[in-house]
Design a protein around this nucleic acid. Structure first.
Lengths: 102, 102
DNA sequence: TTCTTATTTCGTAAATTTACGAAACAAAAG
DNA sequence: CTTTTGTTTCGTAAATTTACGAAATAAGAA
């Protein structure tokens, strides 16, 4: 596809970006987990026990969510405490809400 | 990934399915187009004029949206009139709204 | 210093997605 | 019948995604 960028609005590109982050059930699971356990731990080691994937694969899904801006990791060696990035989460919420409101 | 299905809830799988449909800017564009022109035409030939992709590629994106259940095509030869599938659209809206409400 | 621990990065393989043009299709028009 | 028209399907190629285990990393514990 040529000159991809000019053909889409900023909102269309952001909606597709955030949706891509949610396009895999493991990543939806991770976000659900972080939302439900926001008050407690949220280390990748806690999540891996409930998932049928390798630790390295989980790590890559976490990177993907970080790249989309939906989560952030607070380093607390040797642990990394993950949580939702509320600013971008609200942006995704607003964009998708307006999209579906149409 | 082994035994993928059992590890995720029905909602988690549906959220990832609908999000996957929205994970490409062309498909977001198509949905925007259908929403804005719901009262008029909505043939693929109308959309292709505003997109930098081949007709066959657009056709495949339309199939992807059909497969996810977000649109439907009413055959009116040699045209196909596309529109939003409101039932599934409302389901996607509800699932994502509840997800982001957390 | 060396060990342990939680996690990420690397190398790689398999599967899926995106894309194109050519060919096929289905139905109305000539 | 053949032609035209809008669209999809096919064959294929390139790019991206998902996955794994091994190795690397970083920092506290021994």
């Amino acid at each position: 596809m040529r000159k991809k960028k000019e053909y889409f609005t900023e909102n269309q590109r952001k909606i597709s970006m955030y949706s891509k982050a949610l396009s895999n059930p493991v990543r939806v699971f991770i976000l659900d987990f972080l939302l439900k356990n926001a008050s407690t731990c949220c280390y990748s080691g806690d999540m891996i026990e409930e998932l049928p994937i390798a630790r390295s694969t989980l790590s890559e899904h976490l990177s993907e969510l970080k790249r989309a801006g939906l989560i952030q990791g607070e380093i607390n060696p040797p642990y990394i405490k993950y949580c939702i990035n509320r600013e971008n989460w609200e942006e995704a919420k607003r964009l998708l809400s307006n999209f579906f409101k149409q």
